[in-house]
Design a binder for these strands. Structure first.
Lengths: 209, 209
DNA sequence: CTTGTATATTAGCGACGCTAACTTAAGTTA
DNA sequence: TAACTTAAGTTAGCGTCGCTAATATACAAG
C-alpha cells in the first residue's frame, strides 16, 4: 500500500510539493473527462482517482466544481484564439481568406472539442460570470470581430461592419452547434460544413439585398 | 400523518389510480424544474417532493432519468411545431412572410424555454436516440424545410432549395443559441434578433453572389 | 532544528439516482 | 359481495458524488 502510493507519487511528481502541479493536471484531466462523458456526466471523483489523489484534494486549489469548469473554459478560449490567429495569418492582409480561415477554425475547434465548446458558449452562470473567462472570451471574439470590421471598413460600401460581424458569427456558431449536436444528421441532411460556410459568407459579405 | 397523506392524495387525484396521472404530472413538473435549474442541475427528487410522492415512484412510469428527459424533449418539439404552424398560417400562401414567421417562432420558443430548447437540440445520446423524440423532431423540421422548399421551388431561380433551407436553419439556430446563452451580451453586442434574422434571411433568399 | 504554511489525507454529511421487497388500491371475475 | 390479479405506490437501502472539518505531512525559511 505504502509502496504503491510512493510509486505513484514518484511518477507524477515534477516540481514543488506533493503532486507537483495538481492544479494544472486537474484542468487537463477534467477537460478530457468532459469530452468523454459530457459536461453534465463527468465527475471530479474520477479525475482524482486517475490522478492518484483523494477526492478532497481539488478543494485546496479550486473553490468548487464550477471553478474547475471555469478554468477549463478559459483554457479552451486560449486554445481557440491561438488557432484562429494562426489560421488567419496564413492569408494576406485585407483578403476575405482571413475571415474565412477564422470561421473555419471556429467550426473545426467545435468539432474537435465539442463538449468544451459547449462549456465555453453555454450559459452556466458561474462560468460566464468568471472574470478570467470573460477576459479571454473577449480576446477570442475580437479576433473575428476586428478582422471583419477592418475588411468591411476598408470597403466603399458604408454599411455598419458590426452588423455583418454579428451575422457571420451567428451563422458560424449555428453551423458548429448543429454539427456537434448531430442535428443535421437527425434531420437527415448531409452537410458539407466548409462549403456551407463559404456560401453563406459570400452572401453576407457581398451586396446587400 | 395518515390524514396529511390522505389530504394530499385527495388534492391531486383526478382519475384512475393513486395519484391520478403521475406520468404527465412528472413531465410537466420536470420541465419547469429544468427551466429553473438547468438540465444539469435539476433533480427528480425535488419533482417528487413537490408532487407529494416518494422518490421511487417515477420508476413505475419511466426507465430512468434520461427517459423522463426524452418525454420532456418530445413535449417541447410538439409545442414548437404547433407554434410554428400557427405563426405560418397567419401569412398568405407562397409569401416569404411564412418563412419569416417560422424562423421568428423558432427563436421566440428558444427565448421562452431556453433549457428545454437546449435539451431538444443538445446531444444527449439517450434523448437523441429515442424513437418518439426523433419522430416529433422530424415533424418539426419539416415545417420549416417544406415551407422553404415550396417557396424556392416555385421560383425561377433553379438553385437547390435544400441548401437554402439548411442555411436558414443554421442561421436561426445560431441566433437562438447565442441569444439564450447570453453570448451576444458577453461580447458586448446588443442585437435586435428579429431585425438580424430579417437581414440575413433576405440575403439568403435573394440573389446569390 | 524549529516553526509556519501549503498540500494532502481520512472521515463523514447530505443529496441524488436507482433497486428490491413489500403494501395498497383499482378493476375483473365468479 | 368475495377472491384474485395487477398497476401504482411505499419504505429501506446501496453506491456515487460534491463538499467540509479535522488532521497529518512535506517543504521553505529563520
Amino acid at each position: 500500500m505504502v509502496d504503491m502510493m510512493a510509486a505513484l507519487g514518484r511518477m507524477k511528481r515534477k516540481a514543488g510539493y506533493h503532486h507537483g502541479d495538481l492544479e494544472e493536471a486537474l484542468v487537463q484531466t477534467v477537460q478530457a473527462l468532459i469530452e468523454r462523458d459530457g459536461v453534465g456526466d463527468f465527475s471530479i471523483a474520477e479525475a482524482c482517482k486517475s490522478l492518484g489523489v483523494s477526492t478532497a484534494a481539488p478543494y485546496k486549489h479550486f473553490a468548487d466544481k464550477q471553478d474547475i469548469l471555469s478554468h477549463v473554459a478559459k483554457s479552451g478560449f486560449e486554445d481557440m484564439t491561438r488557432q484562429m490567429e494562426a489560421a488567419r495569418d496564413q492569408h494576406p492582409l485585407g483578403s476575405t481568406g482571413r475571415i474565412g480561415a477564422i470561421g473555419k477554425t471556429y467550426v473545426d475547434f467545435a468539432l474537435a472539442n465539442p463538449e468544451t465548446f459547449k462549456l465555453m458558449f453555454g450559459s452556466t452562470p458561474d462560468v460566464k460570470g468568471n472574470d478570467a473567462v470573460k477576459s479571454v472570451g473577449h480576446a477570442c471574439f475580437d479576433v473575428l470581430i476586428s478582422e471583419v470590421a477592418s475588411f468591411i471598413g476598408s470597403t466603399n460600401e458604408a454599411a455598419d461592419s458590426l452588423q455583418v460581424s454579428v451575422m457571420l458569427w451567428t451563422f458560424v456558431h449555428g453551423a458548429a452547434s448543429l454539427a456537434i449536436d448531430k442535428d443535421y444528421e437527425v434531420a437527415r441532411m448531409d452537410v458539407d460544413l466548409h462549403a456551407l460556410i463559404e456560401a453563406a459568407g459570400s452572401r453576407m459579405l457581398g451586396h446587400r439585398g
